[in-house]
Structures are given as C-alpha cells and as structure tokens.
C-alpha cells in the first residue's frame, strides 16, 4: 500500500507552511473577536434600551446576522464593494469586517441576555441599601454579568476560528489553501497525500478549538 501522505508533511517546510496558514486563520479570528467583544459590550447595553428606533434597528441587525450565511456577507463585502464603490478592499480587511459585523451582533445579544437575566429585585434591593445608580452597576450588576459573559465570549472565539475557514473562498491563503497547494505539488510522488494532509488539518483545528471550548464549559460550570 502506498503512503498516505504523512511523509509529505515532513518534506521541506511543509508542516511549517501549514502552521503559518493556520496562523492566518487564527489571526483573523483573534482580531475580529477582539473587535466583537469590545463593540459588542456597548451594543449589548444599547440593546436593553427602551428607545423604539434603537430597538427596531437592532432587531433588523440581529435578524440579518441570524439569517444570512457569513459566506454571503463575505461575498457582498469583498466583491460588492469593488463593484459599487470601486474600492479595492484587501481580502483580509474584508474578512475582519464581516466577522466583526457578525461577532458584534452575537456578542451584543449575549450581553443583552446577561443583563436582563439579572432580576429586577437585585437593582431594587441595592437601591434600598442606599446605593446610587453607579454603585449598583459597579458592585452588583457588572460582577455578575461579567461572570456570565466570560464563558460565552470564550465560546465565541472557537466559533470565530471555525468560521474563518471560509476566507479561502475570497482568496486568502490559509491552512486549507496551503494544504491544497502541498497536495497539488506532490501529486506525482505521493498521489495519496490528500488523506494525510487533510487529516492533519482536521486535527489541527480540533487541537486549537477543543481546549478553548473545554475552558468555556468548565468556567461556566464553576461560576453558575
């Protein structure tokens, strides 16, 4: 039986190239997730507002993100803006923009959920103890909200990393693209390399996302 491509992995700098491809995906997701968390916190607080216009705007925003596949958004931003505005957007910027657009909605919704899950009684009790509005937020509401949010935000990181695999569709050379290139380059010498290489990519993604999602689950258990 012919080799299944593990040897190809150790030829030259192939493995390093795979890892640097993975880093491209991880880098895009880390930047997007940071933007999402920061802006999402503000958006989430705004979402609890009673203002009707604000409410309607956020509802539409959330529904767009809920229904449109990220891939479609990616295409609209990457190909659409070139056509309409004549922008020559860098693919990575387009990706960060789309994933942040998506992540801010997700994060905002999580923040909103966490804020409204704290019962009204707590605000009232704190007030009754003589705290002012600022103190109530600082000592009572925020600590609980943050505890609830940390595991959920960590979970958002893994979802972001998984979603960034889509960027190969707009021409960014990330781990899957590098894998294809390696397989293509070694087609003659080891025609079965696809098995080994794709299995390794599968495993790499798992090795990144699994610990992060375990962390999120264990924090959630500890703090609930």
């Amino acid at each position: 039986m012919q080799s299944l491509g593990i040897d190809v992995l150790f030829k030259g700098t192939n493995f390093l190239r795979l890892l640097s491809g993975l880093w491209v995906a991880v880098r895009i997701s880390l930047i997007s997730v940071s933007i999402s968390i920061l802006v999402g916190l503000i958006v989430g607080v705004l979402m609890t507002s009673e203002n009707r216009i604000l409410k309607a705007v956020f509802r539409i925003y959330l529904e767009i993100v809920r229904i449109m596949p990220q891939m479609v958004l990616l295409f609209i931003v990457y190909f659409g803006t070139t056509r309409v505005f004549g922008w020559n957007l860098d693919a990575e910027i387009a990706a960060i923009f789309v994933f942040s657009f998506w992540g801010i909605a997700e994060m905002g919704d999580l923040v909103r959920g966490a804020l409204i899950s704290i019962s009204k009684i707590q605000y009232e009790s704190a007030m009754a103890l003589g705290m002012n509005g600022k103190q109530v937020y600082y000592y009572v509401i925020l600590p609980q909200t943050i505890r609830r949010l940390i595991p959920l935000s960590i979970n958002l990181i893994t979802r972001m990393i998984k979603t960034t695999s889509l960027v190969m569709m707009i021409g960014i050379v990330e781990v899957l693209k590098v894998a294809q290139q390696i397989i293509e380059a070694n087609r003659r010498s080891s025609p079965n390399a696809a098995f080994g290489i794709f299995a390794v990519v599968f495993l790499l993604y798992f090795l990144i996302c699994w610990p992060i999602s375990r962390l999120s689950v264990s924090l959630e258990k500890r703090w609930s």
């Binding site: 998984k162 889509l166 299995a199 993604y205 996302c209 699994w210």
Partner: peptide
C-alpha cells in the same frame, strides 16, 4: 470543534 469546510474536504 472543527469547521464544516474541513470536514467536507476530509
């Protein structure tokens, strides 16, 4: 813990 795209490629 893996993206669908990677699963499909596999």
């Amino acid at each position: 813990n893996t993206p669908l795209l990677v699963q499909l490629f596999f």
